[in-house]
Write a protein that binds this DNA or RNA. Sequence first.
DNA 1: CAGGATCCTTTACGATACTG
DNA 2: CAGTATCGTAAAGGATCCTG
Lengths: 123, 123
Amino acid sequence: MKKKAVINNNLPCKTEITAIKDTMEILSGKWKFHIIGTLSLGKKLRFMDLLREVDGIGTKMLSKELQDLEMNQLISRIVLNTKPVTVEYQITDFGKTLIPIIDEIAKWGIEYRNFVYKNKRRV
Amino acid sequence: MKKKAVINNNLPCKTEITAIKDTMEILSGKWKFHIIGTLSLGKKLRFMDLLREVDGIGTKMLSKELQDLEMNQLISRIVLNTKPVTVEYQITDFGKTLIPIIDEIAKWGIEYRNFVYKNKRRV
DNA sequence: CAGGATCCTTTACGATACTG
DNA sequence: CAGTATCGTAAAGGATCCTG
């Protein structure tokens, strides 16, 4: 009776492993979270703005990461036809669905610090 | 009146950026999520077990990732003094605090599939 | 301004062989 | 069994210069 086959919902099964791999591939690299985080404020930012906001990034990486994110429809790229072109980047509605993840990760990072600190003191 | 300085709680500020970097560094690499996910079932697993469970991993990577995870106190390593030594790995209570993140990431990965699928059909 | 092209360094990862 | 050592490849990332 206890032995019926169960599809585990909150424990990792094949589907979830795949889903995790997908997510991590989309968000892989040193900068994606940082860029999404910056854009998640909702403001439109230009290339140069991002270059300043995202701490140590260079043009090559920024350019590449933005392309990746756009391709996955997490951000949108709007070109304005001004004299020297202006390009604005903005998070999409779909991109905003990442915010819960980002929050969880940030929360955990803070907990981690506390945990390490406590343990240092005890030992 | 509306202009008081606010420490944003749900929007990325410096502390959160740092926290995110910490978390991502701890969970970086191709295998950590997979290993944690496997161990998050709560069972003690041995090196060979993990080598089988974690899909394409090799001894070198498994060994290295386990060391990283142990160093950060996410898993524990228990050596039993049997003839050929037996070593058991187990998730720690602290390691279990990662489960919400893993769940969020898995959830999002599934949503992502749906999103892509819908968009393909519309266009 | 926005970003592409180029070159170079570093890190990640993988396969295989070997050891207590 | 539970790894380490060694070697080799591929990918990530960085610095700098260049262009419409």
